[in-house]
Amino acid sequence: MAAELGVPATAGAFAAVDRERLLDTQAEVVGKANPIIGGPAFHIVAEPGAAPVEADLLIGANREEYRLWFVPTGAVDRVSRLTLRLALLKFRIPARAARLYRSARPGARPGEILGEMATDLLMRGPLNRLADSVERAHVYEFAWRSPVMDLGACHGLEIGFVFDNLRHCRELAGDDAPQELADAMHRAWVAFAKTGDPGGQRWDSSRPVMVFDSPGSGVVHAPRDEEFRIWLDRER
């Protein structure tokens, strides 16, 4: 956006740009983007080494974010082993990453392996780093898998549960989405809005994640840690 606008990439420079021009440029840049497989897109950034922000934060992601883009488009089937290798080279991901992800998911297709890695690279990794930069953070993961079109725990699926409005999310969740999960998530979000505490455990060095699922939800410490370490090592 800074390049398109001809301004420095700073908050002050963006603030000085005419609002309509700023919105038009945003639409143009985002229109070229794919949040999973690349392109100029927005993503979460936590400034390295910055002092923790004194704030309350409830933050998280869905376990299979990528499936909203990969499954309906058929990309999950089109990605071959060669495509996966090329993606690893493009994003400078070590080959052992694919081996590790594959070993934990026997029978997974190359497109699913690529999607799982993209979800961690673009969502789970940055979310963990963002939680580290905030004084009081609660981190969650939405894990319930929708049966609709094999979407699984895809991007956007959690919204109907958070707002306790399953009736209006049938296209993603189906007709038999678990009401008890909606009750639990809605209760947590309301509690956070009222008190800053959604329940569960506040983020610390043990990386506690509140996993929302059905038939049961609960805190898991450092989920899929070996896979997560790949992205930490990649940044060093």
Rank of each mutant, 00 (worst) to 15 (best):
R167D: 13
R167T: 14
H168P: 07
R170G: 08
L172V: 04
A173V: 13
A173D: 13
G174E: 02
G174M: 04
G174W: 04
G174H: 05
D175V: 14
D175G: 13
A177H: 09
A177S: 10
A177P: 08
P178I: 07
E180R: 15
E180K: 13
E180P: 15
L181P: 04
A182T: 10
A182L: 11
M185K: 06
M185H: 07
M185W: 07
H186T: 07
H186R: 10
A188T: 03
A188H: 00
A188R: 03
W189E: 02
W189G: 02
W189T: 07
W189S: 06
V190N: 06
V190K: 08
A191W: 00
A191M: 02
A191Q: 05
F192A: 03
A193P: 07
G196Q: 01
G196P: 01
G196H: 00
D197M: 07
G199A: 07
G199I: 03
G200D: 03
G200M: 03
Q201L: 13
R202D: 04
W203F: 01
W203H: 00
D204C: 11
D204A: 10
S205V: 08
R207K: 14
R207D: 06
R207P: 00
R207N: 05
P208H: 14
V209I: 15
M210P: 05
M210G: 06
V211T: 07
F212E: 01
F212D: 00
F212Y: 15
S214Q: 03
S214A: 15
S214D: 06
P215Y: 11
P215G: 11
P215F: 12
G216R: 15
G216C: 14
S217F: 10
S217D: 10
S217P: 09
V219M: 03
V219E: 01
V220W: 02
V220N: 01
V220G: 01
H221N: 14
P223E: 03
P223Y: 03
P223V: 04
R224G: 01
R224V: 03
R224Y: 05
D225K: 15
E227G: 14
E227A: 09
E227D: 06
E227F: 04
E227L: 10
R229T: 12
I230P: 00
L232P: 00
D233T: 01
D233C: 01
D233P: 01
E235F: 05
